[in-house]
Design a protein around this nucleic acid. Sequence first.
RNA 1: GGCGCGUUGGUCAAGGGGUUAAGACGCCUCCCUUUCACGGAGGAAUCACGGGUUCGAAUCCCGUACGUGCUACCA
Length: 507
Amino acid sequence: MKKVRVRFAPSPTGGLHLGGVRTALFNFLFARQHNGTFVLRVEDTDQNRFVEGAEQYIWDCLDWCGILPDEAPLAPGECGPYRQSERKGIYMQYAQQLVDSGHAYYAFDTAEEIENLRESLKAQGESDWQYGFHTRHRMRNSLTMTKEETEALLSADFPHVIRLKVEGNEMIRFKDMIRGDIEMSTNTVDDKVLMKADGMPTYHLAVVVDDYLMKITNAFRGEEWLPSAPVHVLLWKYFGWEKDMPEWAHLPLILKPDGNGKLSKRDGERLGFPVFAMQWKDTAGKAVDGFKEMGFLPEAFINMLALLGWNDGTEQEVFSLEELVQKFSMDRVHSHGAKFDFEKAKWFNHEWIKRLPSKELADRVAPFMQHAGIETGDKNTFVKIIDLVKDRCTLLPDFIKQAAFFFRAPQHLNLEAVKPKWNDDKNNFFVALIHSWQMMQEWKHDELEINFKEIAAASRLKPGELLFPLRIMLVGDKFGPGVFDIIMLIGKEETLQRVSKALQLLK
RNA sequence: GGCGCGUUGGUCAAGGGGUUAAGACGCCUCCCUUUCACGGAGGAAUCACGGGUUCGAAUCCCGUACGUGCUACCA
């Protein structure tokens, strides 16, 4: 049995999309599960689309998610280099091999010529033109020219590409781990360009050569690649590497929440949710926040992504990375796309906030608090606060509102909620309460509560109708954990100060 | 247009011939809590449509419709 090797092969062209992270995740899970190797290969063969910093960014995203690869440009292994631009020199010989064996040919048609031809045919109502087995004989290529003519053009460095020569009327069959047997006719696949005029390989040549050279055993990619899979299968065959061809798995698409179609960055902006894992700054300096900045825990992000197109068949929905490694299986991945549901994504985060130990959570929350100008101070106290409010927080920034009043008196008191039922009796109660609490030797939860109830009873008022105003005085509004829990944490001095101040305002 | 892939509630989905068609999110109604949450109980699907096969079909087969992807010297 061959050692499992998988690769995530993104193009460094911008922010890392949800779907990309999921592909990386499935690769990671599969590799870990089979004690295999997870490779990150950067597919930067398109020099026009190359974006500075995108590669480091991809690494950072995977790092944040906790699914770093074993081999990558930044962590070289045996099969480097891991950037296709740096492998430029090795593709030509393989393309040449195909030319020599008659499976590829030189084509000298310029992009303009082809475009013009396509346009004119379109005008005649022939819209499905493609450079292929029934048209290649009308074009300028080494199949239609004499050997001498071809040689002359080549030695004169006339711009050219190398195209795959796809024979017609052949059925290509291959197995997809998710969809089972797939069958397609070569009649619908065109003579794909293998080597571009700039000397770079196209995706088609590069994936096959690199997957072979990197000994990839399982190739996972998005469903949008399915139509060109025959090209790749053909390439594996023409190279004579058929027995080493990886097992394919074409992952279902992640669709936009409304309507249909692939989820795009624009949808996120339009509907108000992130699409990238982490913040991406484009070359113009415009930044788009990702799940991280939005306050997602990587545990939740990964969990949510795993369940987008996969489930283990039980009712379990919350999985840790370790559990996913254990339970993930490609044959339970769906063959149809799923609409992205941001509400459900938030639910996953809420679940993870509730589950993560408060001590751990505190470290994740602290940066958000600091960003809001709140110093979290003593860690033990902060952990207690986190423990008290975490049920109420869905995204990490929610902690700012839910916990701020522990650190500073509320800026604004929602007295409107209290005033309608405010009266002298209540006022007198609080005056008595302040007096009594000032005398307290020890500041203990149960004793404070007992004392509170005693004074209430003496004032012939129900504790409930007094607890509510007290909450407003301490928190500023109608939310937060138990009033006495709050009192314990903010302490005697602060408690009495807030109550006194509120009483002034209520006069 | 051609080719591929797909189609169970608003969304994610379990289900692989016989079930009252799970569960989750969201929504709605209650309970708990005189806050907000958490927690708990409940409510809502003629399984795209039409034909078959079968004693019996969400499940198998064939059509149709619809959706989506690809159809670049982009990946």
